[in-house]
């Protein structure tokens, strides 16, 4: 499996570290215990396209949001996590 890092190009998966589902969002500090349990422990774990966080530790040290099919390991999109967060923030503000 190879990931195409937006900064470094196509690199072997051994350069990256996996950090799981990229769609979970940390709740507000005063959120309910249920919301926190949901955030820390529960996952959709889909068989199919999965948005996930990878860290390019042996390269540019960027955090990436990768869309990958968990049934085939086919990668359809790699974006910088920063860009994803900024787009989300913009949406939230608008």
């Amino acid at each position: 499996m190879r990931l195409t890092c937006p900064f470094c190009g196509s690199r072997g998966v051994e350069e990256f570290t996996y950090r799981g589902d990229a769609t979970v969002r940390r709740p507000a500090g005063e959120a309910s215990a249920e919301a926190w349990v949901d955030y820390v422990y529960l996952r959709d774990n889909p068989a199919g396209p999965h948005q996930e966080l990878w860290y390019h530790g042996a390269g540019c040290r960027s955090w990436l949001v990768v869309t990958r099919d968990t049934r085939t390991h086919q990668i359809t999109e790699v974006r910088a996590a920063r860009a994803v967060a900024q787009a989300e923030h913009k949406e939230g503000a608008a």
Binding site: D21, A47, H50, T70
Partner: peptide, 13 residues
């Protein structure tokens, strides 16, 4: 291997 998968096959590293 360390990433979510349902593929029943892994990678070379």
């Amino acid at each position: 291997d360390g990433y979510n998968s349902y593929a029943q096959r892994g990678n070379l590293p």
